[in-house]
Design a protein around this nucleic acid. Structure first.
Lengths: 96, 96
DNA sequence: TTCCTATTTGGCTAAATAGACAAATCTGTC
DNA sequence: GACAGATTTGTCTATTTAGCCAAATAGGAA
């Protein structure tokens, strides 16, 4: 059924990834961990907006953070989400 | 960059999957093709709502449809999206 | 043609999401 | 303790999404 825990959490993860900036963040964090200011520079939107994107990804359990001095570093918890990128890239190629 | 075609299409696919009813539909279509009325019976919401969910998935290139008499049958185009289910299930297990 | 069943679409309202600015918080430095 | 840099959170507005009802469309049967 739709209310299965399975679908509830899955939906949260999908929603968390369903934004170009957040997909970009996941890509960047796959290389190595980054602080918020580095991500903000790459993305180009307001720092507060980037922080909110990071909170969405963290709440979904996709990334985690640690503090070092006055900076916060984020890292990717589950690189497996990137497998989905390949699947979608294939889908894109097949489209007319 | 965020505006890359890669991220634009990926976002569309993620958004399309980011709903429990639509994840359920993808699961059902992975077994075999189904007509709208069968899906509506499983999901339990209004027929028009189910039809809209199907349109979202089709626009994203995830499913396709064919007509047979006065029924419309939907099928899953890319079973690879289901690989993501496993990844998320693992993530769920690791959560505290 | 008329009727019936299956599906889609128009139109509306409620809810969720995105993004910006300002204010608050946190940490190390002076 | 006051100050500066990095990050988060409060608040507001605009946009998007979900879901329902009713109406429209498409095929087949009478």
């Amino acid at each position: 059924m739709i209310t299965d825990t399975k679908y509830v959490y899955m939906t949260q993860v999908m929603k968390a990834m369903a934004h170009p900036a957040r997909l970009f963040i996941v890509d960047l964090l796959n290389e190595r961990e980054h602080c918020v200011c580095e991500l903000q520079e790459q993305i180009g939107s307001d720092m507060s907006t980037v922080s909110r994107h990071l909170a969405v990804l963290r709440n979904a359990g996709i990334i985690d953070s640690r503090k070092e001095n006055n900076q916060v570093f984020y890292r990717l918890l589950c690189p497996c989400v990137l497998e989905f990128y390949r699947c979608v890239a294939d889908m894109d190629h097949k489209r007319s």
